[in-house]
């Protein structure tokens, strides 16, 4: 997940990473920190947490719809009366499972890509990593993202399945 080492040419002060471009080196010190990797790193974090986030969103949606549909008498809630909770649950489950599967595939591809990068240029990125392990360069976070997203597929299906067997309220 560590990107290939880029030369410290396009460096900026960390103040600058927030995108407030006005703080380019007006005051005159050199800009010594490499932030070129930020976008890739951010994507890695997204790939890492995408599955569980989708799962949790799915969970809250199906829970809140069922809760609102079965208890409340507020405005517009008649829309959510049975069988809406069951329908919403099934549709949301299919959607969320598909999203998690896509996230898993994406993380898997990223993981494979960083492995291939490593095999193609074994020296790339050596500047920081020693000779002792290469797990982190194999994209451990990408792999973890793949595991989490795959697990989320299971968890989404597990959460949504009861709608096939149980009445809503």
């Amino acid at each position: 997940m560590t990107p290939p080492d880029t030369p410290p040419a396009d460096m900026a002060r960390p103040d600058d990473a927030s995108g407030e471009g006005a703080f380019a080196p007006a005051g005159g010190t050199p800009v010594p920190v490499d932030v070129s990797a930020d976008r890739r790193v951010r994507l890695t974090w997204v790939a890492f947490l995408a599955g569980p986030t989708v799962w949790f969103t799915h969970f809250m949606v199906v829970y809140l719809v069922a809760e609102a549909g079965c208890t409340g008498g507020g405005p517009g809630l008649r829309l959510l009366d049975p069988p809406a909770p069951v329908v919403v649950t099934l549709v949301a489950t299919v959607l969320a499972a598909a999203l998690c599967a896509a996230a898993a595939a994406w993380a898997f591809a990223r993981w494979q890509e960083s492995r291939r990068t490593l095999e193609a240029a074994p020296d790339a990125g050596q500047s920081l990593s020693g000779e002792f392990d290469d797990d982190h360069r194999r994209g451990a976070l990408g792999f973890a993202g793949f595991l989490l997203s795959s697990f989320s597929v299971l968890a989404v299906l597990f959460t949504g399945a009861p709608a096939l067997f149980l009445g809503p309220c």
Binding site: Y63, C70, F158, P162, G167, C169
Partner: peptide, 15 residues
């Protein structure tokens, strides 16, 4: 709570 809600939480607890 409604049975459907119960089953969501049961599923998450088991998962």
């Amino acid at each position: 709570l409604s049975p459907l809600v119960l089953s969501f939480f049961a599923a998450a607890s088991m998962a």
